[in-house]
Amino acid sequence: MTDTTVTRWVANDRSTTWSSPDSDDAALSFHRGLEGYEPTALIALPELARELGVAAVFAKDESTRLGLPAFKALGASWAVHRALEAHQAGTDAEVVTATDGNHGRAVARFARKAGHPARIFVPAGGIHPSAVAAIRGEDAEVVEVDAGYDQTVAAAADYAAGSAGVLVQDTAWDGYEEVPGWIVDGYSTLFREIDSQLREAGRASPDLICVPTGVGSLLQAALAHYRRAEADSDQGGEGSGTAVVSVEPDSAACMGPSLAEGRPVSVATGQTIMSGLNCGSPSSLAWPLISNGLDAAVTVSETAAIEAAHRLADLGIAAGPCGAASLAGVRESLTGDDRVSRRRHLGVDSDSVIVLTITEGAEANPVPEA
C-alpha cells in the first residue's frame, strides 16, 4: 500500500502506434435481446461547449440503463449470463460480488432474473444507505464488512470460494481475470452506441472522452474501443484518435500514481461522495491498456463533483456524483492550471468534440447541496 501525495494531473506519453485487439459484437447482440434494451441518450450540451471553448460537448446519460440508474447493468448482465453458463450452475447456486456502488445492485438484479440468489458484500458505511436499500430491494442478501473496498472484495472472494458460489467481480487479480473480462466486454456496448449516435449527429468519434474511474473496468472498455487498429484507421490513420482521460476522487486516486511509477500502485482511500470510485487499486486486467493507451489521469475534489452535478442538473441531466465527475475532470483538464499544455497534450482545440460519460444518475447516489 502506497501513501501518495495527490497530484491533480498526470500525463501519460503513450505510444501512438500501440493498438488493442479488435473485439466482436457478442455483448452488443446479447444486450439487444434483453427486455427493455435501448441505447441511452447522447445529449448535446452547447452551453458547455461554449464554456470549454470547443465545437461540441455531448453527455452519454447512463441514468436509465436497462431499468437501472447506472452503466453497471451492461457489464453485470453479460457477466452473470456468461458466468452461470460457464459454471453450469444449478438454480440454487449463489451469485456473489462486492460493491461500493451500483455494480452490486446490477449483479443482484440479473442474478434474480436468471433465477439465482445473490449475496452482495459492501464496505460498512462506505456507500449511501439508499444504495444498500436498493440492493436489498433486488432480494439479495447484503453483507456489511467493516473494512475498505479492497478488503471487502477479498471477503467476497473468500466466501465464494468456500461456498461454491459464482463470483461475479469487476476487479481482476492474478488468477481471476475471465469474469472481469466479460464485464469489460459488456461495457463495450456503451462506446459502440456513442459511435452510432455521433454518426447520426453528423460527427466523427470524439476527440476527448472523460471516464470516471474506480478499479478501471469502464476505462479498460473505453481504451479497448478507442485504441483498436480499426478505430485508428477510421479516425484518420496512425497517431490520431480519441484522447482518453481517467477521472478519480482525490481521496482515492490510484491511476496517476500508477502511471508515474510505471506499474500498478495501491493507495490508501478515504471517504468520498463518489462512492463508486472509492477504489485504491487498479484492476490487473485493465493495467496493460491503461499504461499503453491512457492519455492522462486527473483527480477532482468533492466540491468540484458537487458543482458539476448541479451544473448538469441546470442543463437537464440528473447526474450522481460519480457521473458528474466526468464534467469535473474535463473542467480540471481544460480550464485549470497549465490548461494550455494540457490541451496541447490531449489535442483539444476549438474544433474538438468532447463526450462526458455520465455513469450514474442522481437516483443511484443523491447529490448534496452545493
Rank of each mutant, 00 (worst) to 15 (best):
A224H: 14
E200P: 07
E200R: 14
H225V: 03
A221S: 15
P212Q: 05
D250I: 05
A229V: 11
R203D: 02
L218N: 05
I209K: 08
S246E: 02
S266Y: 11
R199W: 04
G202E: 01
R228S: 13
T272G: 05
P264L: 02
G262S: 00
Q197W: 04
S246I: 05
S217N: 06
V215G: 08
P212C: 03
G270E: 15
I273L: 15
G237Y: 10
S275K: 08
S196P: 00
Q197L: 11
L277F: 11
L277D: 12
A204I: 02
V247I: 12
P257T: 02
A229K: 12
A253I: 10
S196M: 00
H225W: 11
G214I: 03
L198D: 00
A260N: 11
P206S: 00
G216D: 07
R192S: 07
G276V: 09
E193Q: 12
L208D: 07
R263V: 10
E230Q: 13
V215E: 04
G202P: 03
L208K: 08
V244T: 08
S246F: 08
S205Q: 15
G237A: 05
G202H: 04
A252K: 02
G237N: 10
Y226A: 01
G241K: 05
D234T: 09
T213G: 03
I209S: 10
V265T: 10
G236P: 06
T269G: 08
V265L: 10
C254W: 14
A229N: 10
A201G: 03
E261T: 12
G214V: 10
V267N: 11
V247G: 05
D232P: 01
N278R: 15
A268H: 15
L277S: 09
A201W: 00
V245I: 13
T213M: 06
E261Q: 13
L208A: 08
E248D: 07
A253Q: 15
S233P: 01
R228C: 06
S240A: 15
G280F: 03
M255Q: 13
V247C: 02
C279G: 03
C254A: 11
I209Q: 13
T272W: 04
G239W: 06
A204Q: 07
G214C: 02
S196D: 02
V267W: 08
R263L: 12
Q235S: 15
P264M: 01
Q235K: 08
P206D: 01
L219W: 05
L259K: 02
S258Y: 06
E261P: 04
G237C: 09
A201I: 07
L219M: 00
V215P: 06
C210Y: 11
E200Q: 14
A252P: 02
L223S: 04
P257H: 04
D207P: 11
A222N: 08
A252L: 09
S251D: 11
C210T: 15
I209F: 10
V244A: 03
Q197F: 01
M255W: 11
L223E: 11
A229S: 13
D232G: 14
R199I: 06
A260Y: 00
Q271M: 12
N278V: 03
M255P: 11
E193H: 02
R192P: 00
V267A: 03
A243G: 15
D250A: 13
E230I: 14
A221K: 02
Q235P: 01
V267H: 07
I194V: 10
R263N: 05
G202S: 02
